[in-house]
């Protein structure tokens, strides 16, 4: 079974169950929206999938293998890529060096090969000025660098955590086009977290809706957006 599946994935932080019995799947070739109000558990779900958090219970399965106990750096090598909602560039490395790290460590390439691969990837994404420090990048370039870093682990599943946030509408269109291209050319499964529903509608074939850590609805956006539970979740009511 290709791709990523979870079974009853749950994590508790003290008294708070941030992700609660979630069954989720993502297969190569599809783009899935992960939506839900603030604090629904979207970022936490990504952190569980990427191995940053260990779940309280439940399983994560990748390409048919249980990876629940596999640490984050090995999941990157297996091909799970992700961006960060709160962007953390590696500020003591240049743009191209930031992108290199994934090729170097997850991809086990040599320095020279990693630098070349990173430069080529940046070029693909329209990123120039490769030796600039990360502080010199504008917001769009920073977002693209984040995507490039996630792609540098050569993922088969990729999670984009609010990469459009903070971009204006032209820039958002630019990134939407980029995500489409990535999906078309690389046969990835992409999980997209976004608050702007226009983006979700535009990009995804199906969505899952989280609320209070629970998966409350799943299906094509057009159906899910009519679901009364989803509507009330977004209006702030509880189900």
């Amino acid at each position: 079974m290709k791709g990523l599946q979870t079974e009853a994935l749950t994590i508790r932080f003290g008294g708070l169950t941030a992700v609660d019995g979630v069954d989720f799947s993502l297969t190569p070739g599809e783009i899935v929206g992960i939506i839900g109000p603030n604090g629904a558990g979207k970022t936490t779900l990504i952190n569980l999938l990427a191995g940053i958090y260990a779940p309280t219970s439940g399983r994560v399965v990748f390409d048919g293998e249980d990876i629940t106990a596999v640490p984050a750096h090995r999941r990157a090598a297996l091909g799970i890529g992700r961006t960060f909602q709160l962007i953390h560039p590696l500020e003591d490395l240049t743009l191209v060096e930031n992108v290199m790290t994934g090729f170097l460590f997850a991809g086990r390439r040599s320095l020279r090969a990693a630098r070349e691969a990173a430069a080529a990837l940046c070029r693909d994404l329209g990123l120039g000025g490769l030796n600039r420090s990360t502080g010199e990048l504008n917001i769009l370039e920073t977002k693209k660098m984040e995507i490039a870093k996630a792609l540098a682990v050569e993922p088969s599943v990729l999670f984009l955590d609010e990469v459009m946030a903070g971009l204006n509408s032209t820039e958002t269109l630019d990134v939407i086009r980029m995500v489409r291209e990535i999906a078309a050319h690389r046969n990835l499964g992409i999980g997209v977290v976004e608050h702007v529903m226009g983006v979700i509608k535009e990009l995804t074939e199906r969505v899952v809706v989280l609320d209070g850590g629970r998966l409350i609805a799943a299906g094509p956006y057009s159906e899910v957006s009519q679901d009364p539970r989803v509507v009330s979740a977004y209006l702030g009511g509880s189900v």
Binding site: L90, F105, L111
Partner: peptide, 23 residues
């Protein structure tokens, strides 16, 4: 060497480093 990239990434942000495959 690659050690430079690993150590610098770890210093800057361990979560990002791990997500790039740094052990």
């Amino acid at each position: 060497s690659r050690i430079h990239f690993a150590l610098t990434a770890i210093r800057d942000n361990e979560t990002v480093a791990a997500s790039a495959g740094v052990n």
